[in-house]
Simulated scan of single mutants.
Amino acid sequence: MSESEAVADSTSAAGGASGSDGTTTPRRRRWPLVLIACIAIAAVAFAIGRFTAFGAGAPATLASDSADAGFARDMQVHHAQAVDMAMQIYRKTTDDQLRTLSYDIATSQAAQKGEMFGWLVAWGLPQNGGALMSWMTDADHPGHGSAATPTSDAELRAEMGIATDAKLAELARATGATADCLFLGLMIRHHEGAIPMADAVLARGAEARVREVAAAMKAGQLAEIDAMRFLQSRLRCA
């Protein structure tokens, strides 16, 4: 079954509202709004949770090359681009659902980025250090054996789902449905690149708060991927 068929089936299963003439009005467009609302609620819960920080359980020392520190640095880089792309489309899209989703992405990831900056300050560690993904093992790189693990900065950024400068320039120039569809494709890939990093720190992170944030981040981004794929289907993106 194709993705569009799956969307249609889920819409039919949800039913519709009956009009005065006995016809049924599809509820297809309501589903992403419900999901987006749930994402927004989760973002608020995350923002409240960030103020708990580490509490009395903070470690006395944390190595600069630890999974926790590497995740905090790399995910700040990752989030910075997501916020930039989300605000670009927020300012120019005319699609209400996409505008709501892009706003939620920008605000939630800006908050997460700020918290991760604070972690490194609390740990007494530099904001920059080491190559991208150097804290991850070969097994953390999806689709690669140990001999094929990416090593160049461009390869690493591509694996993280980070858009190239050329794609960012294309998004900046695009308008209308072209811009909407380009954003959705770039952001889906961007989100997909974050999942292995979240999984890696969930497996090896020492800090409970870091693992808590990584788990919430993974769940939120998977939900947003579903919402964006639905929007791709509705907007008939190629």
Rank of each mutant, 00 (worst) to 15 (best):
R73C: 08
V83D: 11
A80V: 06
V83M: 10
G49K: 07
M75T: 10
D68I: 04
R73G: 00
V83Q: 08
A67F: 12
A82Q: 05
A53I: 01
T61L: 11
S64C: 01
A58V: 11
A69F: 00
F71N: 02
A82T: 05
G49A: 10
S66H: 01
V77K: 01
D68W: 04
G57M: 06
F54S: 07
A53E: 12
Q81T: 04
A60G: 15
A72K: 01
T52W: 13
Q76W: 04
A53F: 11
R50G: 11
G70P: 04
V83H: 05
G70V: 05
A56M: 13
G57Q: 11
P59E: 09
H78N: 08
D65P: 03
S64K: 11
H79S: 09
F71H: 10
L62K: 04
P59K: 09
A72G: 02
D74Y: 09
D65H: 07
Q76P: 02
G49S: 13
P59F: 10
A58P: 00
D65F: 00
R50Q: 15
A72M: 04
A58F: 10
H78F: 08
A56Y: 12
V77H: 02
G57R: 12
A69H: 01
A82S: 11
Q76L: 10
A60Y: 03
A56T: 12
R73D: 06
T61R: 15
A69Y: 02
T61D: 15
T61V: 14
A58R: 14
A69L: 00
D74E: 09
A82I: 03
S64H: 06
A58K: 15
G55A: 07
T61M: 12
A82Y: 00
M75L: 13
A69E: 00
G70I: 06
T61W: 08
R50H: 03
A56P: 04
R73Y: 09
G57V: 09
A82L: 07
A56I: 10
R50A: 15
G55E: 03
F51Y: 15
